[in-house]
Simulated assay, not measured.
Amino acid sequence: MSSDGMPVQDLLGGEILKTEIAGACHFYNRVVGERFDLTASQFAAPIQYMDDYRKAELSLAKSVRGRLTARPSKRRA
């Protein structure tokens, strides 16, 4: 899963939304009622957006944010 939506939300606010595409999760943003999808061009067909914000937050919390905070330090003592 890409985490492109997190920096956009940090900078501009708004919501991170989720849509299922071919069985995979696709994340994008909505800021002041406008949809921003920085990675839409990776798909050949037009996206049928579901704009699911509840599942997006739950998915992000379980995967990207969890992995970022759970990474062990690679520093040597």
Rank of each mutant, 00 (worst) to 15 (best):
M1G: 08
S2P: 01
S2R: 05
S3W: 04
S3E: 06
S3P: 00
D4V: 03
D4L: 06
D4W: 05
G5A: 14
G5P: 01
M6W: 12
M6E: 11
V8R: 06
V8W: 11
V8A: 10
Q9G: 05
D10Q: 08
L11Y: 11
G13L: 01
G13M: 06
G14W: 14
E15I: 03
E15F: 09
I16E: 08
I16F: 12
I16D: 04
I16H: 02
K18Y: 04
T19K: 05
T19C: 03
E20D: 03
E20M: 13
I21L: 11
A22N: 15
A24P: 00
C25A: 13
C25G: 00
H26T: 04
H26V: 05
F27K: 07
Y28P: 01
Y28S: 02
N29P: 00
N29S: 09
N29M: 06
N29T: 06
R30C: 09
V31Y: 06
G33P: 01
E34L: 07
E34Y: 10
F36S: 04
F36L: 14
F36Y: 15
D37T: 02
L38G: 02
L38P: 01
A40C: 04
A40Q: 11
S41C: 08
Q42W: 08
Q42K: 15
Q42D: 04
F43W: 12
A44E: 06
A44W: 03
A44G: 05
A44N: 10
A45K: 11
P46V: 05
I47A: 05
Q48T: 08
Q48S: 11
Y49P: 00
Y49F: 10
M50Y: 04
M50S: 10
M50I: 01
D52L: 08
D52I: 09
D52N: 14
Y53T: 14
Y53M: 03
Y53Q: 09
Y53H: 13
Y53I: 11
R54A: 12
R54I: 10
R54S: 02
A56W: 08
A56F: 04
A56S: 10
E57L: 11
E57A: 15
L58C: 04
L58Y: 11
S59V: 13
L60H: 09
A61P: 00
A61L: 14
K62M: 10
K62R: 14
S63C: 05
V64T: 13
V64H: 13
V64M: 09
R65K: 13
R65S: 11
G66P: 00
L68H: 02
L68D: 03
R71S: 09
P72D: 09
P72R: 12
S73A: 09
S73V: 02
K74D: 10
K74Q: 12
K74P: 00
